[in-house]
């Protein structure tokens, strides 16, 4: 069902939001992702994903304080919701389960 399964990029974004704590807003997320994945992450893509995740209820957001930078425009800070956290945990456990299913012997042969 839509909303329960996370795409790869969605998962990355969610994780970054969680990792950035209070500083999780679009540009910071974009930079963090670029730094960690080593690929250029477009702002437009991150923006779209953040929006979708919020629609799915995995993220919630609120506008921060206005500052002089950004032409006086406020930042939108994202936070994980309980559902978001659950989705991440679910994704991780799903992976862990799958990892566990690979016998180490087989693994070494590849």
């Amino acid at each position: 069902m839509k909303g329960t399964n996370l795409g790869e990029f969605e998962e990355l974004v969610l994780l970054t939001v969680a990792a950035l704590l209070e500083e999780a807003y679009s540009v910071a997320i974009c930079d963090e992702l670029s730094a960690h994945t080593g690929r250029t992450v477009k702002l437009g893509v991150v923006h779209a994903v953040l929006n979708r995740l919020e629609e799915k209820g995995l993220l919630k957001s609120e506008l921060g304080e206005a500052t002089k930078a950004r032409g006086g425009k406020r930042k939108r800070f994202y936070q994980l919701t309980a559902a978001g956290k659950a989705a991440l945990v679910h994704a991780k456990s799903l992976r862990d389960q799958l990892w566990d299913r690979i016998p180490s012997l087989v693994w070494k042969k590849i």
Binding site: H47, L63, A69, R70, K73, K75
Partner: peptide
């Protein structure tokens, strides 16, 4: 609802 932070992001990139 989206316009403010979107413009902000664009501005930040612009700077």
């Amino acid at each position: 609802s989206l316009v403010e932070d979107l413009l902000g992001d664009l501005n930040e990139y612009f700077e």
